[in-house]
Design a protein around this nucleic acid. Structure first.
Lengths: 191, 191
DNA sequence: CTTGGCTATGCAACGAGTTGCATAGAAGGA
DNA sequence: TCCTTCTATGCAACTCGTTGCATAGCCAAG
């Protein structure tokens, strides 16, 4: 279960509440792992019960109190152990590719709008990642000699950037292919 | 649930048994969607019950009988409807990226072997995809004028090829970064 | 002749992930 | 004033996905 480990990494980088973790899973950590707040609260509770995390009640003004979690020694040990275990190379779950192949059995032109919409989403993500890179790693405001943690965060972010660039180029390829197919024989059904 | 739709697309491309579908999910369809045979059998049974699929018992010689599934009219309609609905742009689940960020809290050198192993797996996948492309789409044995279905299968395969190339290049970036970090300060823990 | 691998299907149990709903105080706009 | 949004946490029900196990006939290698 990698959600536990993603939470350990995020809390080692900076302690925080379930709510704050949920925010991070929409940003930095969320570039390569997603989780909803329900999942996070449930797992935090279990990990606290297992002694992997320590909790501290923090009273706040103008907003509800929060529980700030931080990594306890057993949690750090569990992460270290996981780092030394091999994991399965990831595999994709790409709904859009299913749709594109499925379009052969309906109207290929019908998925053009959907592909364009996905292209816009990926363009926005790329812009967001590039802005983050400039802010945290390559801009004038960024700390000049990056430490190990920052270097590793940067190389992971570069992976996200490469992924989005690749995806955008591929979606352009898909759009060109769809246009070629629908120009020659509009609404062609081959069955 | 996209597994249903992936099965519909695969069965429209060619009818087959649960076992054959499981094979395909290790090859072509598996480039962008994974499923185990248990999942497939369970979903096939449900879809048959819903009237989306038709079954035909096929007796075989030298091997067990099989149930050959094909798409019935309601299944085709369900796929067509899904093609017209918007879907969420996919998000990654990348364990290795969690490990890489986590390596800052242990020994960065400890993940080098793991990253190299993943690089080998992705290189093998790329070689496999390229061989498939040559066999089915760009080689002398491939059908010269591709039909709509083949064109769309090809563009999806090109996506898989682009993904593997991007991933290999990124893993090289990761390895270079890890070497840089461990050369300067071997087994550096910054906490 | 026994062992292991391939085709072929399936059950049972569990863990992971999603969806809907609920609470509750504070801030800010219509 | 009411409505919405934000912070903050959580339960309950459900579906999806994984893992382990079981059956069973055929084939090939040792």
């Amino acid at each position: 279960m990698a959600l536990e480990h993603a939470i350990l990494v995020s809390l080692l980088e900076k302690p925080g509440s379930g709510y704050e973790l949920a925010r991070r899973f929409e940003r930095s950590i969320g570039y390569f792992w997603t989780a909803t707040h329900q999942q996070i609260y449930r797992v935090l509770k279990r990990m606290e019960g297992d002694g992997m995390l320590a909790v501290r009640e923090v009273a706040q003004e103008g907003r509800p109190d929060k529980k700030e979690y931080s990594v306890a020694a057993p949690g750090r040990a569990a992460l270290a152990q996981w780092l030394h275990e091999p994991i399965e190379p990831e595999s994709l779950r790409h709904d859009l590719a299913v749709k594109i192949r499925g379009a052969a059995f309906d109207d290929p032109a019908a998925v053009v709008g959907e592909v364009e919409r996905h292209r816009r989403v990926h363009s926005a993500r790329l812009a967001h990642y590039l802005a983050g890179e400039l802010r945290d790693f390559t801009g004038p405001e960024a700390p000049a000699p990056l430490d190990t943690g920052q270097e590793l965060q940067h190389v992971v972010l570069r992976g996200g950037i490469a992924y989005e660039r690749m995806t955008i180029a591929w979606l352009d390829d898909v759009l060109a292919t769809l246009h070629r197919l629908t120009a020659g024989a509009p609404t062609s059904h081959d069955h």
